[in-house]
Design a protein around this nucleic acid. Structure first.
Lengths: 267, 267
DNA sequence: CGGATTATTGAGCCAATTCAACATCGGTGG
DNA sequence: CCACCGATGTTGAATTGGCTCAATAATCCG
């Protein structure tokens, strides 16, 4: 179940994920970066030491997970396509891993290599931009974790689920007029582990929301919200709306420069 | 109750806090930085926009807090002397603030000024070190928030309190042989808001721990743990032990350079 | 000392969990 | 194509951990 297949080059680039400008900008015509393909349940163990690698999520959905000694699992955060994932440099073994909810394509970048490159290169300010962007990645994650701490510490189960659905609508949803439709590859257990609840509770609250017509569930792995504002009014705080695209742009621009230079070196 | 007194210069430098090498290294003989003195309950509202300022906690204890519409409060993280606090650049109004648990002295640093300085200066790599260090500050906070997410999401009340006491022992404790003595300026309500519980629950668990002789409470605002290992064995995860001193050193060294240069400019 | 704040303790309640039974879905092979 | 099976989801009943409300005690501070 923990089988991780690694594919180099442009494998999987026919599908929509790889048409992503992030992928194209970074890997260019001659693929430099390595693509990792994960399937549902596959894990990427984070080596403790330093955060040497960064992954750009091209397709699919992943979670940052932590496990306890007795098997309990807590999901710290979720990532959707466009997200930039970075391990943490805990001295201790944190027991954290990245897990895929469905077929997922990641673009792996070695920061060590980038750092090495910038050290050899003449322009130091450009090289530091990598750190500056890494900063913004970590910073965004900190914002997300901050609001999730409030969710876990002070919201009841209904509020948690409501906030979760609205957040997913913002991050994954396809607007259909006023309504939003969301394809969500998480199981009830995944959702429970993210919200600090259990599967049955998630199921019960979904049923209640369905009956009150606030949310529709056309299938197991999708839902739609007819009137997002009405749902949001039930919350004691605004739904956090974190930037993501600009941040991506910035990160991209830096790395693009590197990738291009790398290509030059190799030729 | 939300009265914040601001003192410039070396006010309060007679007490132990300001003998701290951080303070001396940064402010030097001619005080450049501004000291902020907070009292119990005082707040530092974080302006939304960007994280322009950084505070070094010289003395006392503070919390990063978030409030909900109906008055519920969640404490995201705690800071003890030596800690480096930084606001977050949320576009949205996050409703976060920094609050002091007792008389507290902070050293406020304007990052804008530092950035300006580095822009005017010839050595760009040196300037970027500020960002690199700010990165490590944010990164450490991310680690703390990560483990606290697990605490709030998957630990029961007894485990939360146990972990909290051990964490405080590591960060604030004075070892007395095998035992650890801790002076803790937090009320039961503060602890509850940090652990996602309520005051009565905290009180009840303290009573239970006292009866089982795992923890002693010589006064309202202090406790001691005779055998930390025994207490730790009751937890389903190791107590996170985050670095803090080295990180401080690094941050210091960068800023020291700046402070010195500033002094030169002023003369 | 007196008054306000903070902490403790008890009784009752409710939200969320546990345990168990059953339903639905998706995939596989006959 | 259907039957079957395992995985996932739903629903109900009983339990319990933590909360609310209320009364009392301890502590702090002017």
């Amino acid at each position: 179940m923990t089988h991780v297949s690694t594919v180099t080059g442009h494998t999987g680039c026919d599908d929509a994920g790889c048409q992503h400008r992030v992928c194209r900008s970074i890997s260019g015509p001659k693929p430099l970066k390595r693509h990792k393909v994960l399937r549902r349940g596959d894990r990427l163990e984070l080596e403790h030491g330093s955060c040497r690698k960064v992954w750009i999520l091209l397709n699919g959905m992943t979670a940052m997970c932590v496990g306890l000694a007795d098997g309990r699992r807590q999901i710290l955060g979720l990532d959707v396509p466009g997200g930039i994932i970075c391990g943490m440099s805990t001295g201790q073994h944190s027991g954290a891993w990245i897990e895929a909810f469905c077929d997922t394509v990641l673009c792996e970048l070695e920061l060590q290599v980038a750092a090495q490159f910038q050290a050899d290169n003449a322009a130091p300010s450009d090289g530091m931009e990598v750190i500056a962007n890494l900063f913004s990645v970590i910073h965004q994650r900190l914002e997300r974790y901050s609001s999730h701490l409030v969710t876990l510490g002070r919201l009841d189960s209904t509020e948690r689920v409501t906030l979760f659905l609205l957040d997913m609508a913002i991050r994954l949803g396809r607007p259909c007029g006023q309504a939003v439709f969301v394809e969500l590859p998480m199981t009830r257990e995944d959702i429970a582990d993210y919200l600090g609840l259990n599967t049955e509770t998630i199921s019960r609250i979904f049923t209640r929301l369905k009956k009150s017509k606030l949310v529709q569930f056309p299938s197991r792995s999708s839902f739609s919200i007819p009137e997002p504002e009405r749902l949001e009014r039930r919350l004691p705080l605004p739904v956090p709306h974190h930037m993501s695209l600009d941040q991506l742009e910035t990160f991209l621009s830096t790395l693009h420069g590197h990738a291009a230079s790398f290509d030059g070196v190799r030729q």
